[in-house]
Design a protein around this nucleic acid. Structure first.
Lengths: 229, 229
DNA sequence: AGGGTCATTCGGCAGATGGCTAATAGTATC
DNA sequence: GATACTATTAGCCATCTGCCGAATGACCCT
């Protein structure tokens, strides 16, 4: 647990955009600016000041309070996020790509993997899909250093992202929002449609990216994908 | 390499004694205050100000420049330290204890493992030894979070510490200096007597702790130790 | 005894931080 | 439309950072 704290603090401290790093972690922990500020006993605008880099070099006191607050808020709520982060084993591959030889559509893909659209369903047929990238959401957040946090998405235009190991879909969509190049579609693995986070849906809508869920097993999905190549 | 930077930055940021954390890493990298300050283009007293916690919450800008400087200084000198840190495999035990059933002396121990004293040799016979703790110096520095960096030494009074994987003996002695409870003797493994760092010797002298080296293989040493139980 | 490197302490100062309040605005939900 | 929650922006100010220079002690060396 301390290790995770150290990683977050170090990431913020070394980031060339510390405000964005703080924002990322706040959103990953699913805390609003006002909740966080209330917890810290300061005004919400102060949080916004940090996240917009109005303070170019925040003191480590701020960082410490910030990280501690996120942890304590999560612990009060049961410590689910921290638990999942701690359980994630390092040194394992966290993504896998399947390319299609010819373009398909979101609708066809969802049909193949028994997916259900929860946001932006009208766009499901618009964009051609050239492949699917399967990602472990926890590992991405943990193992990609902040600077390269978004680099993985550089090739994801015209591709669907399938996130595994997500409990609400919030963290992956935060990642998507921060990315400069957006995927054509996002699919959340093993997550009931009604448990999808509202913030995640909101991000999907505002970005215009179809968001879907599927309960099919991972190996099943891979089979289907490879069969459709 | 970035991971190591993040770890150092995070450790400093979250430490309740950031000055000491900065000092630890500066000394681990073997850089003097004046060299570091010269490299950063600031005055040596500024470094001292930080290390004595005159600034209670240094900005992340300072931390960033500090960490970058340490890395660049080491890289200019060949990057040996960074290389060693990167090579250290995690998830491996980093210490091993051998206890004696009855007390022995430093002189007897050194004779058994073919050790050679390089500092404070006159005290080698004074203190009774009840055991030897074998430590991997790199792993200690890397894996022990700063707060518990010294906890391992709580039981080392009346014991000798044998450090493996050290290239100059500087880092282990820095660790010893920071520890609240001191070992009775320090032995550096696989290191020629003339390559022992001068700062290491100085620390040993000022702490009154005999410092020795041995070239005997680790397995040989363990055999000898177990034989003398 | 003197010179060199090492580190610490302290007073001082420009400028930045850390915080506030108030105003603004986008989305949701009622 | 009103209310509530979200986040951002701007002006303001006390305090603290970030850095300096000078003075002070340790050492070690020759």
């Amino acid at each position: 647990m301390d290790q995770l704290k150290v990683k977050i603090a170090g990431e913020i401290a070394l980031s060339s955009d510390p405000g964005n790093a703080m924002k990322k972690w706040r959103e990953v922990f699913g805390v609003s600016q006002s909740d966080l500020s209330h917890y810290l006993g300061i005004s919400p605008s102060t949080i916004s000041d940090y996240e917009s880099n109005r303070r170019k070099s925040p003191g480590i006191g701020v960082i410490r309070r910030f990280v501690d607050a996120l942890f304590q808020i999560d612990l009060k709520a049961g410590g689910e996020l921290i638990k999942r982060f701690m359980e994630a084993e390092p040194e394992q591959k966290f993504f896998e790509a399947v390319d299609f030889s010819k373009a398909t559509t979101g609708a066809k893909l969802l049909e193949a993997i028994q997916g259900e659209c929860v946001a932006c369903s009208r766009k499901v047929d618009e964009l051609p899909l050239y492949g699917v990238t399967i990602l472990d959401s926890i590992k991405i957040i943990l193992e990609l250093p902040y600077e390269s946090f978004v680099r993985i998405y550089s090739t994801t235009s015209q591709r669907a992202l399938l996130f595994t190991g997500t409990s609400t879909g919030r963290s992956p969509m935060v990642a998507v929002r921060l990315a400069p190049i957006k995927p054509a579609m996002v699919i959340l693995h093993d997550l009931p449609a009604d448990k999808v986070d509202r913030l995640a849906v909101k991000i999907a809508e505002s970005e215009g990216i179809p968001l879907a869920v599927t309960k099919l097993g991972l190996s099943e999905i891979k089979k289907k994908l490879e069969a459709s190549v």
